[in-house]
Amino acid sequence: MLFRAEITVKLKDGMLDPEATTITKALKHLGFECRSLKQASVFELEFEADSRQNATEVAQGMCQRLLANPIIHDYSVVLE
């Protein structure tokens, strides 16, 4: 079966995010005040799997083995 997954990888809460700080400042220059700002990487994938459960496991495997670094990242998987 073909599955579509959306994987989001973002920095763990409390991790310093220098890019987000810079973006927040740039928004401020444009008149937008943000109390907080987080950025994340989103991966949209299509792949074959035997079942929904299998597809979830495959996507989580991708995160654990490559897409996320467990020291600094949290990730979430949404299957369509």
Binding site: L16, P18, E19, T22, N69, I71, I72
Partner: peptide, 16 residues
Amino acid sequence: SESNLVPGTFTLNQYP
């Protein structure tokens, strides 16, 4: 560090 041969990781500089 990405190979887990040493602990921790090296990420974006504080001033990016």
